[in-house]
Design a protein around this nucleic acid. Structure first.
Lengths: 143, 143
DNA sequence: ATATGTGCAAATCCTTTGCATAGAA
DNA sequence: TTCTATGCAAAGGATTTGCACATAT
């Protein structure tokens, strides 16, 4: 399955993608998937609601939250903790890190290939990694 | 100024420390400073309120928030974004990263000396770093 | 005096929840 | 039918705010 590579995914491709993650492809879920899975992007629940309403959807705020949380739980999206204000969802679920412009809040992907960790301490024998979150915060230079 | 090294800081040391950061040492601020600056620790506003009340303080919730935010803005504390649920404040303001036990929420410091970044992409000419936040999430191995 | 800090309650913002209706298996 | 999803409004929880009173300069 290759999404986000060529042209916009077809409804059939999206439905198959959701099904592959154990998510029933309802009309609203397909709307959210179509919005987010055609390219890597970072969105908030409010943005998803606004953009779908803008293109004629009658999806509710509760369903947006339900859907984003379900997608994140099933690996269709990745939930990010960037600031304490609101949750961000990333349609790029592959391993990568983030730059954040601290003035605008804007997020940019940072490929893992551009970071190497060395000397990482060993994890205790009874523990295991569940994720590594790296956020490099930047701002426009004062001048 | 060396806090958090030997025995508990004296009120005079704490007042000087706050003053050095441009913070007027009021009674409530000294209570918060005394609680947090004697050792490196990670706390929430609710925890600060509860612990101070427990030792007889009549500090209010609003003042706890005001104080923690002021301390973070002036560099007396560092605010952490660990989960979307609540803000964490770290009395270790030196450069370091964090482990998080995803099941208990517990945070542990990870010295920067134990991590080396390589290949970090150059920052655009008109931008500058404001911080690097690294959270390595762990959980007890299923067994 | 004048500016700053504190405490209380109310307000705010994001997110979740309860429940009735609608839709799918 | 029986289970699951949706939508609305209300509830929930963390944080901020307005304002009167207290404290410091």
């Amino acid at each position: 399955m290759r999404l986000m590579n060529d042209s916009a995914p077809t409804p059939g491709m999206l439905a198959a993608h959701l099904a592959a993650h154990g998510v029933r492809p309802t009309a609203q879920r397909l709307q959210v998937a179509a919005l987010l899975l055609d390219r890597p992007q970072h969105v908030t629940a409010e943005q998803v609601l606004a953009r779908l309403r803008q293109v004629g959807s009658r999806i509710s705020k509760a369903t947006v939250y339900n859907t984003l949380n379900l997608f994140a739980a099933r690996g269709v999206l990745r939930q990010l903790v960037i600031d304490g204000d609101r949750a961000w969802f990333d349609s790029n679920v592959g391993p990568h890190y983030h730059f954040q412009d601290t003035e605008t809040g804007e997020l940019t992907d940072l490929p893992t290939s551009q970071v190497h960790f060395e000397n990482l301490p060993p994890v205790p024998a009874d523990m295991e990694y569940t994720g590594i979150d790296l956020v490099i915060r930047l701002r426009r230079r004062r001048g």
